[in-house]
Write a protein that binds this DNA or RNA. Structure first.
Length: 156
DNA sequence: GCCAACGTTGGC
DNA sequence: GCCAACGTTGGC
């Protein structure tokens, strides 16, 4: 039986963690920590090894999909929730009862031609992306059709 | 820096 | 359980 590969989009502010940071990491792999939204967390927990995701840069000009990553480790407790020095510290979380999770991702490709938010808005095939409707959802599903369209726009 | 959208908190 | 107040995200 062939496991279904799911497709996602994950947002990050490049000033905090950028696609180039991931490119420089050991094995081009890093933990996607700091997610503190329940709906986004539930999507993180639904991710399976081998799933792919777009890496989206938010809060920069221009906001854009800048590449693709692959899930290499499924959800496990995000250690920053226990770290009092972290901005993502959550006093309500405990080791016994973690509230927040992260996955590890490996960089697959950095787009030569990032796909800007403006271009996404102008493409009729992409009008239903949660990105355009729920701007605050930092981890969200992508349909195969949307995936193909964005890769096409990126020249990949 | 502003502010719309929307998620979270807490008083009742 | 409602909802006002508050906080955060993220485009502009």
């Amino acid at each position: 039986m062939t496991p279904m590969i799911r497709l996602w989009l994950m947002k990050s502010e490049p000033g905090v963690f950028s696609i180039d940071d991931l490119a420089r990491a050991d094995n081009r792999t890093g933990g996607w920590d700091g997610v503190r939204n329940y709906q986004a967390r539930n999507f993180l927990k639904a991710m399976r090894k081998g799933d792919r995701a777009f890496f989206y840069h938010s809060s920069v000009q221009p906001p854009a999909v800048v590449g693709t990553v692959e899930v290499v480790r499924e959800a496990y407790p995000d250690p920053t929730q226990f770290d009092k020095k972290s901005a993502a510290y959550d006093p309500a979380a405990s080791q016994d009862n973690p509230r927040w999770f992260q996955v590890d991702v490996r960089l697959l490709a950095k787009f030569k031609n990032p796909v800007g938010l403006e271009a996404i808005k102008s493409s009729p095939e992409l009008r239903d992306m949660p990105l355009l409707r729920h701007s605050r959802l930092s981890v969200q599903p992508v349909t195969p059709r949307q995936w193909k369209r964005i890769e096409q726009m990126a020249g990949h």
